[in-house]
Nucleic acid binder design. Structure first.
Length: 839
RNA sequence: GCUGGGAUGGCGGAACUGGCAGACGCGCGGGACUUAAAAUCCCGUACUGGAAACAGUGUGAGGGUUCAAUCCCCUCUCCCAGCACCA
């Protein structure tokens, strides 16, 4: 007795101590059957390429937040496969980069060793969640067979003049001891370690991404299935602005100050000109500047400030007049003072601006501080009725007035609307050779070298005679040498520089002595083209087979974190367009549809992090509740793109749902023996409402998967299961169709139950059910009856009921009738939905 | 400051194209089963009043359009994300 009870308890005690060994069983069988191996050479079926942003394998392993996007693409790809598509859903690892190297430095483990261990751990963690990845196609960016082609792309860019050496000061992280791209900064700090970034002059390799700025911007129009927010972020990052460059002659010299402005229409209000402190003209004018000592001291002060400190001065602009220097406004030949000021950036435009305090906030602030004249040249445009048509009335009397308006006191250009003035003035500039129209971008060329060890070597050999020479293609890959010491030197040289026998080589052009480039590529290099490698991962003769690429590209659906909107996603588009121009790929955009995944936060509402001790490990969740419960919960917890807090409590709902599904299985009607003709043993008549619910579920879940609205898909499945649970016997056909719908979400449970009710594996090779539109409707409909917009009753009427019949029924209803006793003025009837009386 | 997105029960959230606000889940209350607990099942659960029928109120705040507003328009508050002296 006692033993029996213990057994019962053991079995009934859910979810603790549950047996999920069927998950491992099916995973093994799937793998044995190569269920998810994609034959990319099979071009006969329609293809669907679903891609996750591949992870960086960190030592900490996955937490429950990481797989959320992978679960979604997994549901999606399984759904597409059931629909008959040839699906490519691969996974790989972006494994070069600073964390592995820093970890190596700290723990004296070679990055190769720790990276391989981390990758192995990630694969384990991912496999137990039951993803349908084709692991045979895994890519690893640190594999020489892979980075050979990363280097190859760089070489092609070098050949085309898109990769060049530069000695400009760049962002330098004093802690990571490496140069960084603009994209690697967060609030003026190193995105990796949080140290304030300095400007440091350094030899570096740079990619001419600005050559592609217009295409990167314009082609966003070709991407209707990208989220608008991400496109907007890219637009802002590229930051195209149209304006004019204008030359201000420096009085008494041959020199000119070239300024950039988007508001040439305000130029008659220009009362001074500002140069960035670093502007080369300042040094050139040294002898003519009356207060040079003061100026030199100011420049020195600015130079010693980090970017962060400089932008901290946001509210407090500083500057100095250059005494003895004045500039001439070409439009009115007026002499204006010249200043240097830290609110003008040397890195944007021409590093010089014309200041119009009446119509620019910053100039206004500066002019007030230094008592410079403010002169109005734009007034708000007024319509005939005196209403302000441009700018707001509040702005009309107060300066600065920064909206468009009408030009005033602007010589021959007076009285024009701003837009027209800009066009005419640009023409005038061109005609008189005082300037021209000009487009500027915030986007900067991509600083592409890192003075660190763990990255792809840049395939360049420096020769005293020939300069920088590309490594010949047949010599690729340039392998990253094994070293004992990979500490960054901090001198601006990579640790590779210390390996003399690696560095010292022969110039491929002249055969003389050559020295290898010792900088490595940034983290983002390998991820800029990896999606192409999955199509054709073993190819060692080409980056990708042309025919395969043409068939499989572009990626149909790409899912990942929004943090990549302005880095990876711009870099990858840039490289792809370059490869397109080279004829390597057949389409000029890599990703057709893009969806960003909302973060999973800790239960305390903070980001999951060791620091807060709020990390939930998926392995633990899977062990206790099963992989399918984890999958289902993550899809159910909220809208996919929204950040949601993890809740183990709420996860129990998903587990209970799966238990309910499982508990239905014994009540499923047995299969009809195949020898018996189906007509001879008709299925018991299904309640029509149930059939309708089934077809509604097929429709809704399918549409919701397409639209990435998994939370409502799961909720609809729950509604169907709740309805089924009330039946003493479960119609086999309904249960089977339901399992098919469930299969993308809970692949293990669906497979297990599919087999438990006597079907042959694999459910994942079946076909997604069709819904019958005729069955979506029920015989009777509910019409809500309102009186003056307030709900007074709900009528159940036959579907065919006419408007008159429904009005009559409403009048007959006791509660509704009360309100209609004195008659009514009119009514509005929305067929099948609502009837509203106005009394 | 600029750009984009939000604000709905105790909680996560749902609601087609302006048409029954709160689906589904969590939690909570009550009941069944049990010696008991857990698990499971059933009933209830926006708020206020009422035994109930029902009535009133209610989607961040205030106004507007409409027979009808979570949804459209205007003003405002707060939250999240990205960018930020970009001329």
């Amino acid at each position: 007795m006692a033993e029996q009870k213990a057994d019962q308890n053991g079995e009934q005690n859910k979810p603790d101590g549950r047996d999920f060994s069927f998950e491992k069983k099916w995973a093994a069988q799937w793998e044995k059957a190569r269920l998810y191996a994609t034959d990319t050479a099979d071009l006969s079926k329609p293809k669907y390429y679903v891609l996750d942003m591949f992870p960086y394998p960190s030592g900490a392993g996955l937490h429950v937040g990481h797989p959320k996007g992978y679960i979604a693409t997994d549901v999606f790809s399984r759904y597409k496969r059931l629909q008959g598509f040839n699906v490519l859903h691969p996974m790989g690892f972006d494994a070069f980069g600073l964390p592995a190297e820093n970890y190596a430095l700290k723990n004296k483990v070679h990055p190769r060793v720790s990276t391989d261990a981390n990758i192995a751990n990630y694969i384990n963690q991912l496999k137990i969640i039951g993803f349908d990845y084709d692991w045979e196609r895994m890519v690893n960016t640190t594999d020489p067979d892979y980075y050979k082609w990363t280097q190859w792309i760089f070489l092609k860019m070098f050949e085309k003049g898109l990769a060049y050496e530069s000695w400009e000061p760049i962002n330098w992280c004093p802690s990571c001891l490496t140069g960084l791209a603009n994209e690697d900064l967060e609030d003026g700090k190193c995105e990796r370690c949080g140290s304030p970034v300095e400007k440091k002059p350094l030899r570096q390799w740079v990619l001419r991404i600005t050559d592609y700025a217009d295409r990167l911007l314009d082609d966003l129009e070709k991407l209707p299935h990208w989220e608008p927010s991400i496109k907007e972020m890219q637009r802002n990052w590229i930051g195209r602005s149209e304006g004019c460059e204008i030359d201000f002659a420096i009085e008494g010299t041959e020199q000119k100050i070239r300024v950039f402005t988007t508001r040439v229409d305000t130029i008659f209000g220009c009362t001074y000109v500002v140069l960035a402190p670093e502007h080369p003209l300042v040094q050139e004018l040294k002898t003519q500047i009356g207060n040079w000592d003061e100026v030199a001291a100011y420049i020195e002060k600015i130079k010693n400030k980090s970017d962060l400190e400089r932008t901290d001065l946001n509210k407090d602009k500083s500057g100095l007049p250059l005494q003895g220097i004045s500039a001439v406004n070409p439009f009115n030949n007026e002499k204006v003072a010249v200043y240097i000021a830290d609110y003008v950036l040397n890195s944007y435009g021409t590093g010089a601006v014309m200041a119009v305090p009446a119509h620019d906030e910053r100039d206004f602030e500066f002019a007030n501080k230094y008592k410079i004249a403010v002169r109005r040249s734009i007034q708000p445009a007024l319509a005939t009725d005196g209403q302000v048509t441009a700018g707001s009335a509040g702005d009309a009397d107060t300066l600065p007035f920064t909206d468009d308006g009408l030009t005033v006191d602007s010589g021959d250009f007076s009285g024009l609307p701003s837009a027209e003035a800009r066009a005419k003035m640009a023409d005038w500039l061109k005609k008189t050779k005082n300037g021209s129209g000009k487009v500027n971008y915030k986007l900067k060329d991509w600083v592409f070298s890192r003075q660190r060890y763990w990255g792809e070597p840049i395939p360049i050999i420096h020769c005293e005679k020939c300069g920088a020479v590309g490594v010949p293609e047949q010599d690729l890959p340039v392998r990253l040498p094994e070293v004992e010491q990979y500490e960054p030197s901090g001198t601006g040289e990579s640790p590779l520089a210390k390996i003399e026998d690696w560095v010292s080589t022969v110039c491929p052009q002249c055969g003389g002595p050559g020295r290898r480039e010792t900088n490595t590529m940034p983290q983002w290099a390998g991820s800029s083209w990896y999606y192409l490698r999955y199509i054709d991962p073993q190819n060692d003769r080409a980056l990708v087979d042309k025919k395969l690429e043409q068939h499989w590209s572009p990626v149909d659906f790409y899912v990942g974190g929004a943090e990549h909107a302005t880095r990876h996603l711009i870099y990858a588009r840039f490289w792809h367009k370059f490869l397109f121009d080279m004829g390597v790929v057949a389409h000029d955009e890599p990703f057709t549809r893009l969806q960003h995944v909302g973060l999973i936060m800790g239960e305390d509402g903070r980001k999951m992090s060791k620091r807060w001790g709020n990390v939930i490990n998926p392995d633990d969740v899977v062990a206790k509740y099963g992989a399918d419960a984890l999958r289902l919960y993550e899809m159910f917890m909220g809208p996919f793109d929204q950040a949601v807090n993890w809740s183990t409590r709420a996860l129990i709902g998903a587990r209970r749902f799966l238990d309910k599904v499982e508990n239905l299985a014994p009540r499923v009607q047995p299969a009809v023996a195949s020898t018996t003709p189906p007509a001879a043993t008709p299925e018991p008549a299904l309640p029509k409402a149930l059939l309708s619910e089934l077809h509604k579920t097929i429709k809704k879940v399918g549409e919701d998967i397409e639209g990435f609205k998994f939370n409502t898909a799961v909720s609809q499945m729950m509604i169907l299961v709740n309805a089924l649970a009330e039946l003493p016997a479960i119609p086999r056909d309904v249960y089977e169709k339901f399992l098919l719908i469930l299969a993308p979400f809970a692949p293990f449970t669906a497979e297990e139950l599919w087999s438990r009710i006597g079907n042959k594996p694999f459910i994942h090779r079946q076909t997604w059910p069709q819904y019958d539109p005729a069955l979506l409707q029920t015989d009777s409909i509910a019409v809500s009856v309102q009186v003056n917009g307030k709900l007074r009753g709900v009528l159940q009427v036959p579907r065919q009921a006419t408007e008159e019949e429904i009005i009559a029924a409403a009048g007959a209803d006791a509660n509704i009738g009360k309100y209609l006793a004195d008659g009514y003025k009119k009514h509005i009837y929305v067929p099948g939905k609502i009837l509203n009386f106005v009394v």
